[in-house]
Design a protein around this nucleic acid. Structure first.
Lengths: 155, 155
DNA sequence: CATTTTTTGACCTTTTCTGACCTTACTTTA
DNA sequence: TAAAGTAAGGTCAGAAAAGGTCAAAAAATG
């Protein structure tokens, strides 16, 4: 249990223990650990992804950098997966209404929030109908619920 | 975050924090930062464009100058409508990032909310690219912001 | 031994920086 | 007062400086 990736992870965690956000240079860090630059990407993908509560932002070009931020909201464990299951790739208006109704009953959303979602989503769908609308509705609804539910459970 | 362009950006932002509009001389600013004059244009194009909420006007010849004006979009009243205008029917990731950045600056969103939107929207876009992604991104982003902004200003 | 995780390297994309050359506006002078 | 000179800023293409991707090889794991 101490591959190079583990060492790099450990190093970054130490930095992140002191600051909520750190900036690194891929090349420099790679030189520091005597590895190839893409190894850094591997560590970031496997250890500092969103599931583990980190956000990575990077910029290329001269003065480029990689910023790792510890995030303040617990990614709600398997909400994304469940929403994926429940909503799927298409969602009719009736299905959406049903789901929203159930979420209000379960007190996951307030009535106001449900109404807001309904309004905003339907507004974005104006002019569309049939399968096209159902596909888009599924995506919009998923994003909407992820936002509202995550907001409810701040770290 | 410390390329020459970043430094010049920072300097100009400081000026613009005190006045809504500033006038500079390209040559002089270039001398000040020990760079070639066209570097200034680069900074203006990438950091002070309309997407980031700035207007640039310039005049050549003797006594020439460059004027940068901050667009003051007032946060509260009809933000939703403004957002729809700004987002339009397509939105690249860079445009989205720029907009989120500005909303954080304007204290319409917190950094966490911005990160949340970024994450959730990008997640829904996995597998898509090009125009298709840009179209969908515009829609998802609009819904996301409408939800969060309404939540912030209920009623 | 099969599978998963790690490591590496070749090739790609984005962002920044520079310099040669162009255009516009004001100033001077024949 | 028209032409020439001077003093700005603009454009664009290419070099340089980052970071990204992906697949194959190597190592670890069970």
């Amino acid at each position: 249990m101490s591959s190079l990736s583990d060492l790099i992870e450990q190093y970054l965690r130490e930095q992140l223990a002191r600051a909520e956000s750190i900036e690194i240079q891929r090349r420099q860090l790679a030189r520091m650990f005597r590895c190839v630059p893409s190894q850094i990407n591997y560590v970031l993908e496997t250890r500092f992804n969103i599931h583990r509560g980190y956000l990575v932002y990077s910029r290329r070009g001269g003065g480029g950098f990689i910023r790792i931020t510890r995030i303040n909201w617990e990614p709600h464990p398997d909400l994304p997966r469940r929403l994926e299951e429940v909503i799927g790739s298409e969602c009719s208006q009736e299905e959406m209404d049903g789901l929203l109704y159930r979420l209000v009953e379960a007190e996951v959303l307030t009535e106001n929030e449900a109404a807001l979602v309904e309004t905003v989503v339907q507004q974005e769908l104006t002019g569309l109908s049939g399968k096209e609308a159902d596909t888009l509705r599924a995506r919009l609804l998923r994003v909407a619920l992820l936002l509202l539910c995550q907001e409810d459970y701040p770290g």
